[in-house]
């Protein structure tokens, strides 16, 4: 026990000496400021204006609330969109949401397609730059046999557009 106490005391003395000596070291140091500028975040936005339904048979704009489509007719919904993609590495996928096969029309009697600025949207259209004066066009082509789909309804109220950023560097 006595030996341990002596050893500990000697060790403490050594550490104290080292600390005392360290305080007397003279070291160089320097500092400088850097002007890194400002970091500005980009922007991703999608705004839709009121769209217009037209009929190839009626020959112009129609009021979809009162209009009844017949086989052989194609209705077109044209909607102005403003797409903002600001960011050096910003890319996003444009998709149509809310379309559902669950509607009142008989299977195979309706063909619904959407294009953005003339390009088919399909499962998603990759965008890399803003397009303030865009146009989304959805066509509703109706064809039927016999009395198929008489008085049927296709609800587009939940249909919309989504713009989702993709991970930078991915295709």
């Amino acid at each position: 026990m006595n030996k341990m106490f002596k050893g500990a005391a000697l060790t403490g003395l050594g550490v104290a000496l080292l600390l005392g000596g360290g305080g007397t070291l003279a070291v160089w140091n320097a500092a400088a400021e850097t002007d890194a500028g400002q970091i500005v975040a980009g922007d991703l936005n999608l705004e839709a204006d009121a769209g217009v339904w037209t009929s190839d048979l009626a020959g112009g704009a129609i009021d979809i609330e009162d209009y009844l489509v017949v086989p052989g007719e194609t209705l077109t919904f044209t909607q102005p969109l403003s797409i903002t993609l600001e960011g050096n590495q910003l890319a996003a996928d444009f998709t149509v949401t809310g379309t559902s096969a669950a509607n009142g029309f008989a299977s195979g009697t309706v063909d619904v397609t959407t294009t953005l600025n003339g390009q088919p949207v399909g499962d998603g259209l990759r965008l890399t730059e803003s397009a303030k004066a865009s146009s989304a066009v959805t066509t509703f082509a109706f064809d039927a046999d016999g009395r198929e789909s008489v008085n049927a309804e296709y609800d587009f109220s939940k249909v919309g557009y989504a713009l989702d950023q993709v991970v930078p560097g991915t295709n």
């Binding site: 991703l44 936005n45 999608l46 705004e47 839709a48 009121a50 769209g51 339904w53 979809i64 609330e65 209009y67 009844l68 489509v69 017949v70 209705l75 919904f77 909607q79 969109l81 996003a92 949401t97 809310g98 009142g104 029309f105 989304a136 959805t138 509703f140 109706f142 789909s149 008489v150 008085n151 049927a152 309804e153 296709y154 609800d155 587009f156 109220s157 939940k158 249909v159 919309g160 557009y161 989504a162 713009l163 989702d164 950023q165 993709v166 991970v167």
Partner: peptide, 17 residues
């Protein structure tokens, strides 16, 4: 990641009788 959604407000298409 950023993402935004805009509704179309396209209404309902109904077939004639």
């Amino acid at each position: 990641l950023w993402g935004v959604h805009a509704p179309s407000g396209a209404g309902t298409v109904r077939a004639a009788d």
